[in-house]
Design a protein around this nucleic acid. Structure first.
Lengths: 190, 190
DNA sequence: ACAACAAACTAACACTTGTTAGTTTGAATA
DNA sequence: TATTCAAACTAACAAGTGTTAGTTTGTTGT
């Protein structure tokens, strides 16, 4: 046996970076091979298809979000605190794999067999999110604006973190999460 | 002479929709031709290259943002009001061409000769934006948090509008802009 | 020394890519 | 009626695509 997948993981990590720069469709197996210092055919000793790489990148991330949301949803916290935890979840996952988040956001439509499953996870996540917001409105914790506008506004920012975090590695994730929570929840008006 | 470019414009509009669904690289000239009800070679009676289509989509949008920002920047308004105007600018442009915004956000890296120019416009836009926020902090109009976090948070939401607006055409742009301004500036805390 | 094996290689495949050249069609203009 | 012209067509190209088959290489444990 092995340390399980070391070489395969290197390929997936390299692909992740290339996908974030040019997008899945624009990256060829020969590009990937060159970046790995080998020939395209050699990649197939470690992976079964280009598709499979995309799946490995996206599905694990999507499941991490679903699992995190499950925990938050079932926790015994105020709505504001749950929103804090959602922000922290996104900052955490994105900090650990910012390049993969690019594929999650931009290349999900090139999943094939796994497309439906991915959309399911995404749909579930958004339903849980909007339910939390509706609870907050009902319990008078948050302002009574269109709940979907609120979710969209917060989620757009969190989904774009991958564009930003790699350029700001001087910023501590804890502090970033705190600042973001502040701005998203309390606004910027003085 | 002509109504100038009618057929060419149809091709660009059709391409815009296809690009938003699959991304620039994944759309072939044969896909585009099929969607237009013609053969790939016939497209070249109206356009010079695939590249040129992308350029036509992206650069005009980027210039619209730059021009809008110029007007706002030079206007004689409070910082909060300027931010309202920026929100309205994004809602306006995105409502008029939501599909094109997908390319602006996701396919800009496939510009070639125009890439540098695009990046220039984008850089300028962000500098103007962050300058407005810094003014607001200095004049005590807005809260003293990291100005880049504030800009990032607002701009991420505005840049994601294209994902959302096409599904919500029951929502009046004026009302949407108002709701968004509220949430982005005043937050959601009660 | 030998067997086993991970990991690279060369060569080739069937197909798809953007694009060009030259031709046909049918309606508007002279 | 003859001419012009936009806009479609067929045919083909050179290069690039993901992937397969079979082979070589070098290390590791027996």
């Amino acid at each position: 046996m092995n340390t399980e997948g070391t070489r395969r993981d290197e390929i997936i990590n390299t692909a992740t970076k290339l996908f974030k720069e040019k997008g899945y469709s624009a990256v060829t197996m020969r590009d990937l091979a060159t970046a790995m210092g080998m020939k395209a055919a050699s990649l197939y000793n470690h992976i079964n298809s280009k598709q499979e790489i995309l799946k490995a990148i996206i599905i694990s991330l999507a499941e991490a979000f679903t699992q995190g949301m499950e925990t938050i949803k079932n926790s015994d916290e105020t709505v504001i605190r749950k929103l804090n935890l959602i922000v922290a979840l996104h900052v955490d996952i994105t900090t650990k794999n910012p390049y993969g988040m690019a594929s999650l956001n931009n290349d999900w439509m090139h999943l094939e067999e796994q497309l439906e499953y991915y959309l399911q996870l995404r749909e579930g996540y958004e339903q849980d999110f909007v339910a939390i917001i509706k609870n907050g409105i009902a319990s008078n914790e948050i302002v009574d604006t269109n709940p979907e506008v609120i979710m969209f506004s917060i989620l757009s920012t969190l989904r774009s973190l991958y564009l930003w975090i790699p350029n700001k590695d001087d910023l501590d994730p804890k502090i970033l999460a705190q600042n973001l929570s502040d701005v998203l929840i309390n606004g910027i008006n003085k």
